[in-house]
């Protein structure tokens, strides 16, 4: 009997290991029920990128966030040609574009062949209209994620200020 339940849960686990598991790693979707996750999966766009293919360029219209299902993506500044971050499976980027209309502030390039899931503003707005409960859940989590990022940026600014103060102290 226990073997049966073990296999049963393994089966459930295997099912979860796919796209659902990746979505559950994203803070924006973490508190969603399985039914709500299915709704999200239906509105996601899946795109395949080849190695070194540009996902979006700095200055392009930003419409939403990308979730990496497979592969590695580099975020880089076009002018300085320097890599800001290297993201892998389960990571996400571009979530700010879900809220504002500003152009992309950096470029994203696939370092290896990649499969991305795209969650865009028109679909989010549509979702808010037809399923306000789910829409507000996502918006709340999105606000939380951006708040967390702001906190970490504040910490970094504080550290930098301390370093700068120390340096000016030394030179004086």
């Amino acid at each position: 009997m226990s073997k049966f339940w073990e296999n049963f849960f393994k089966f459930r686990e295997r099912q979860k290991n796919g796209r659902e598991a990746i979505l559950l790693k994203i803070p924006v979707f973490q508190e969603l029920t399985p039914r709500e996750l299915k709704t999200i999966q239906r509105i996601l766009h899946q795109r395949e990128y080849t190695e070194a293919e540009v996902i979006f360029a700095e200055g392009d219209i930003g419409l939403g966030m990308y979730i990496i299902e497979k592969g590695i993506v580099q975020i880089a500044c076009k002018n300085e040609h320097h890599i800001l971050a290297e993201l892998a499976e389960g990571d996400f980027f571009g979530e700010l574009a879900l809220l504002d209309d500003a152009p992309r502030s950096a470029s994203a390039v696939a370092k290896t062949p990649a499969t991305l899931l795209c969650f865009f503003k028109p679909e989010l707005l549509d979702l808010i209209e037809r399923d306000p409960k789910l829409g507000s859940k996502i918006l709340f989590r999105l606000a939380w994620t951006i708040g967390e990022r702001l906190k970490s940026t504040n910490e970094q600014v504080k550290e930098l200020m301390c370093v700068a103060q120390k340096r000016t102290g030394v030179t004086e």
């Binding site: 766009h45 795109r47 293919e53 540009v54 979006f56 219209i61 419409l63 795209c118 865009f120 028109p122």
Partner: peptide, 13 residues
């Protein structure tokens, strides 16, 4: 194509 996909969605929107 990947290059125009986001812009196409933007146009639809």
């Amino acid at each position: 194509p990947n290059r125009y996909f986001e812009f196409t969605l933007y146009l639809f929107h």
